[in-house]
């Protein structure tokens, strides 16, 4: 076998070897935890700082604009901001722009309210605190006091109580979502007369205090598609609602112009962005430990290194084999 043939073989390597390599480097870091440090960037810090300034008088939207496909990237972002909001007692409206995304919203709630999650929140159903609501106890702190006076005890490991209708409203999916955003600039209740669990939104204290998007302080769209721009077009441009983007890594570069133009307050790009938010939460004592995105960064490091090695290998073969002198080469088919 001549030397040229080796280089040619290297260039035309069966892509299944590459797939195998990626498979291996994706699995191994799950067993060997490197825990490499993640440094935060200003794009993510600006979202964190903004949310951190808010309190129980404010409200935010978290829009689940992603399908299960991109949930590995998008879910940690939504979960991180949700936990930050719950920690600061900021009421959270949750929406979804597609039926499948509705399922993602419920999955996120399930995760944050699940006692097996480290640093979970104890959820109180809308119906369960009906008597207190009807007695006019709707402020967060008086509500916690009254609730605990009724003999309810915060489970061990839980970071706090969250009351449905006071701390969050799972609004969910509504068809033609861009028009729903537009409608919510006038009234949230007309767009969502009931929430995802069939509760009347008109009875929810948080909807009585925040009737339209004008009375909301931020919307995070954790998005796997171009739907994130709807929030800018219909909410930001119409009435100046601050928007934060949570985007997949592939999309992230596409949306930098919105950031530079000041149309969004910040942007979390891919797993890295989510990991940065998790680091900020942990560093500031909001969550006891970092979460899935941070763990995933090891995998991403390993995969990027492998891709770079492959590129170097390809170029060595390209030059050593003398292919740079030829005009065209189609390899790998």
């Amino acid at each position: 076998m001549s030397a040229v043939n080796i280089w040619e073989k290297m260039l035309n390597i069966d892509r299944r070897w590459i797939f195998l390599g990626i498979g291996v480097v994706s699995i191994v870091p799950f067993f060997i935890n490197f825990g490499m440090p993640v440094r935060t960037t200003r794009e993510v810090e600006s979202i964190y700082d903004y949310v951190d300034e808010l309190g129980s008088d404010n409200a935010i939207f978290i829009s689940f604009d992603f399908a299960p496909g991109t949930s590995a990237e998008n879910m940690p972002m939504a979960v991180a901001v949700m936990r930050h909001a719950f920690y600061n007692d900021i009421p959270v409206f949750m929406t979804a722009n597609y039926p499948l995304h509705h399922g993602m919203m419920l999955a996120a709630m399930e995760y944050v309210f699940n006692p097996t999650t480290e640093g979970f929140y104890e959820d109180v159903d809308f119906e369960d605190w009906k008597d207190l609501r009807e007695a006019g106890v709707t402020g967060k702190y008086e509500l916690i006091e009254a609730w605990e006076n009724q003999g309810n005890q915060l489970p061990e490991g839980a970071l706090g109580w969250v009351f449905e209708g006071r701390d969050y409203a799972a609004l969910g999916y509504a068809p033609v979502f861009n028009l729903v955003i537009l409608g919510m600039t006038v009234s949230i209740e007309t767009q969502y007369p009931v929430d995802a669990h069939g509760n009347s939104t008109g009875e929810m204290p948080m909807l009585q205090e925040h009737k339209s998007l004008r009375e909301v302080d931020m919307a995070l769209t954790s998005s796997g598609s171009g739907a994130c721009v709807w929030w800018v077009t219909y909410a930001r441009e119409k009435m100046g609602l601050p928007i934060a983007f949570g985007l997949t890594a592939v999309m992230a570069t596409d949306y930098f112009p919105y950031l530079q133009a000041g149309q969004v307050i910040g942007q979390m790009g891919g797993l890295r962005g989510a990991a940065e938010y998790e680091v900020l939460l942990t560093e500031n004592g909001i969550t006891p430990s970092t979460d899935k995105a941070f763990r995933g960064m090891d995998v991403q490091s390993a995969a990027h290194i492998l891709i770079i090695l492959l590129i170097i290998m390809g170029n060595i073969a390209f030059f050593a084999g003398g292919f740079h002198k030829k005009t065209l080469l189609k390899g790998g088919r």
């Binding site: 390597i13 892509r15 590459i18 797939f19 390599g21 990626i22 498979g23 994706s26 592939v250 995969a303 492998l306 891709i307 492959l310 590129i311 290998m313 390809g314 170029n315 390209f318 030059f319 740079h324 390899g331 790998g332």
Partner: peptide
């Protein structure tokens, strides 16, 4: 699958031609 395809596409595309 994107991760696998990106690796394979990067290998073929990034040549210092």
């Amino acid at each position: 699958l994107l991760a696998f395809y990106i690796a394979s596409a990067a290998f073929r595309a990034f040549r210092a031609k």
